[in-house]
Design a protein around this nucleic acid. Structure first.
Lengths: 118, 118
DNA sequence: TTCTCTTGTTCCGAATCTATGAACTACTAG
DNA sequence: CTAGTAGTTCATAGATTCGGAACAAGAGAA
């Protein structure tokens, strides 16, 4: 049971539907919003603190896999931690304006919207 | 086994994650893009012709349920047909710029992106 | 070194979601 | 009434997702 190396897709091969699928979950969207706020790489614990919610770690780990494989985040292992940052600029070159408009929509959600993990 | 009446959510109660989930599928995204092109209501057959792909009807029917319940389309029965139109203006009031930027991204997808039903 | 703590990963079973054939409803035309 | 067309519902097999338990891997202390 060894830990696999991190794989990141080239931005050119990222599919729009994968990006949308990755963001179609309140927890993942909140993670992305937190990384966007932070503007600096964060590990999972720091991110979840900012999200203000604790998930089971296995679930959380899977969320990171999905975000990474959808091309949304870039991760590096720093010791025992996983440091992640948004691939903002690259993503915006591939899908101009997309991430911004989604994050904007997320930030003005009302109570009807599921907050992180409804 | 009677046919249930059509239910449309109020736009205020539409969640962003539901919208993203509805659009995180190549067939549904293609349907939405086709309705957006058309600018006039289309039934399922007409829409799928424009999409250029035929799905099993049960699958197609489910896609319409998902799009309708996510607040993306407004449907009316016209005789035996189901006429659908995008809820463009309403949606844009709720999530300004969102649908436009997603459709824009969809239209500039490359071969790596799954076309309708990859 | 070894022990322990922390951070995250992997595995696996249960619960949930999705796709589709078959049967059905509902309407139209002849 | 019969046949045809458009779409819905049901049942179920298949795919995804969630989360607990066990594990990996590095940091720090002794």
């Amino acid at each position: 049971m060894s830990v696999r190396p991190l794989k990141h897709p080239e931005m050119a091969s990222v599919a729009l539907t994968d990006v949308l699928h990755a963001l179609a979950d309140p927890d993942r969207l909140a993670i992305v919003a937190a990384l966007d706020d932070a503007r600096t790489p964060l590990n999972c614990v720091e991110t979840m603190e900012r999200v203000g919610r604790s998930l089971p770690k296995s679930t959380c780990s899977q969320h990171y896999v999905i975000l990474r494989e959808a091309g949304l985040i870039w991760c590096e292992r720093k010791g025992v931690e996983l440091e992640s940052r948004l691939r903002t600029a690259e993503l915006d070159r591939r899908f101009p304006g997309l991430l911004r408009s989604i994050l904007k929509a997320w930030r003005l959600r009302t109570t009807r919207d599921p907050g992180p993990s409804a």
